[in-house]
Amino acid sequence: MKNQETHSTGYLTYAIVLIGLLALTTLSVAVTGIHLGAFTVALALLIASIKVAFVLAVFMHLRSENLFLKLAVAGVFVLFALVIIITFFDYLFR
């Protein structure tokens, strides 16, 4: 069976990612004070998405997984986005 070899990630990598995640959290809290109107939500979600991408890629080892799993994870997020968008076809045009 292929793909059975282990991909070991170093402790330092994890620590750096954690620092990055904490920095992004600080940023996220900081920008709440600035009034950007509707962009506040968009910005908060953008930062959250970057954080999630880091957790997925490094903590959850997705970067060393096979292509199928990467596509499946991406597909799940796209599918959920489509469900929200299509539901809003109703709420936005009512």
């Binding site: 809290v29 506040t40 908060a44 979600l45 959250a48 954080k51 999630v52 957790v55």
Partner: peptide, 19 residues
């Protein structure tokens, strides 16, 4: 456990940071 973290990453700005 990472999933629990991942959900929280979205919950946190949506619940606490919308003011």
């Amino acid at each position: 456990w990472h999933l629990v973290d991942l959900i929280w990453i979205f919950l946190f700005p949506l619940l606490y940071l919308v003011s």
